[in-house]
Amino acid sequence: MSRVSIQAEDFDIAAELAALEACGGGGVASFTGIVRGGEGLTALELHHYPAMTMAQVGRIVEDAMARWPLLGVRVIHRYGRLAPGERIVFVGTASRHRTAALESCAFLIDWLKSHAPFWKKEHFSDGSARWVEARVEDDAKARGWLE
């Protein structure tokens, strides 16, 4: 079972985890990304390149399934305007054993954080806004997995 959704709406983590638990493995690992607040941040605006996002995320999920013995993979990424505290991304993996589930989950989120064609704009309470710049360390981390 593998499913990818790129959507504006929020998602139900309990339902997603239950679906992964029903894959028949011995372990489920997951990561949920939340919009981090602070410094007067009022909203995060996410843009993406729809035609490319689905193809790219689909490919990396296939990579993960070839690399680890996985029974289930679920990726959800939101776009649009999100407030601090809102869920932004979910990665869940199911496998017979914990190592494969944990490692593949980390691999997928590192890749999403650095290579998925998303751009973020931060909006602040004083009315200002700025585009987030790419983080060098995210790029290095994702490359590490591919070496």
């Binding site: 990304g33 064609p117 998303f118 710049e133």
Partner: peptide, 12 residues
């Protein structure tokens, strides 16, 4: 057919 031009991606 399609060329896209953008800043480095900033992920999720």
């Amino acid at each position: 057919k399609e060329l896209a031009i953008f800043p480095p991606v900033t992920g999720g």
